[in-house]
Design a protein around this nucleic acid. Structure first.
Length: 291
DNA sequence: AAATCGTGGAG
DNA sequence: TCTCCAAGATT
């Protein structure tokens, strides 16, 4: 039997309301699921969809990507954001070819060892692609658990041990059911129990939600710091990389200098990109995406 | 363990 | 306009 009281209602809700996302289809490969999970890190589904389609069309298997220079992955990544994820995916492909015979590993430990694959992504791939029994703890699930079980509007800034233990305690005993339960509660957070305006009227577990039963008390404590973006190194890095992405080949430094007026910050951002392996400084003083 | 790392859409 | 935030990971 299930360890939690709303499993049946949640699974029924999912069956009726789940989005038809391509990486959820029965014929989706483990590689395509891994690609989707990396792309979805901090990035909305609507923006991932076209990028995922294009990526999978070009590199249907890890081996297809592994033969490319990493810069091609960065270029293909386009404006998805956090371009180091493109590098991670490229490194994943090569590792999978070299150490796993070209097949995405199925165990949590092997997945967790891949670059850019943390606790959430390893659990997600192990569960969604291979039917493993793992607690899924992404931002959606954390929000649902915070409300339904803890009775607060938002979870802590960073995942805690308590959250992991709660998620694991709720996991259905059967692996197949657990895997379905994981996507279901995630989908609930994405579609109903949203951050801004939760649709409690449509929620299948509203009658058991501690936060709603408590009268939906507002978030306590300091407002969670808004990440001002304008003027940061991140913005400069973004502009620099955009020039290299949109260029056919190597770019003269003068072209990079036009993207930001402040030379100190500009150089710092460029150096950081080089250190991260996202930009290749060439002998002749030009810059390019890495080979 | 707090800071860093992009981008764009919604309210 | 401006703030928030979107399937996190890494150092």
């Amino acid at each position: 039997m299930d360890q939690n009281p709303y499993s049946t209602a949640l699974l029924a809700w999912y069956q009726a309301n789940a989005r038809d996302l391509p990486w959820r289809r029965p014929d989706a490969s483990a590689w395509s699921i891994l690609v989707s999970e990396i792309m979805l890190q901090q990035t909305p589904v609507t923006r991932v969809l076209p990028a995922w389609e294009a990526w999978m069309r070009r590199w249907p298997t890890p081996a297809d990507l592994a033969t490319e220079p990493s810069g091609e992955a960065v270029r293909m990544w386009n404006r998805l954001g956090y371009p180091r994820r493109a590098l991670n995916l490229h490194a994943c492909a090569r590792t999978i070819v070299e150490r796993h015979e070209g097949e995405v590993p199925s165990s949590y430990q092997d997945l967790r060892a891949l670059p850019g694959v943390g606790a959430y992504t390893a659990a997600a791939v192990a569960s969604f692609a291979f039917g493993g029994r793992h607690a899924i703890l992404d931002t959606n699930v954390r929000r649902v658990l915070a409300r339904a079980h803890t009775g607060v509007e938002y979870p802590p800034k960073t995942p805690t041990k308590a959250e992991t233990e709660l998620a694991e305690s709720l996991l259905p005993a059967d692996a197949t059911v657990a895997a379905r339960w994981g996507v279901a509660i995630m989908e609930l957070g994405a579609l109903v129990c949203t951050a801004r305006s939760p649709a409690c009227a449509e929620c299948p577990i509203a009658n058991q939600c501690a936060w709603r039963l408590a009268g939906k008390p507002a978030h306590e404590g300091p407002p969670r710091r808004g990440q001002t973006y304008a003027g940061t190194d991140r913005q400069v890095r973004g502009r620099l990389l955009a020039v290299l992405r949109d260029a056919e080949g190597p770019v003269p430094k003068d072209d990079l200098d036009t993207v930001w007026h402040e030379p100190i910050q500009r150089e710092r951002a460029l150096d950081a990109l080089v250190a991260d392996g996202l930009v290749d400084p060439r002998e002749d003083g030009t810059y390019a995406l890495p080979g």
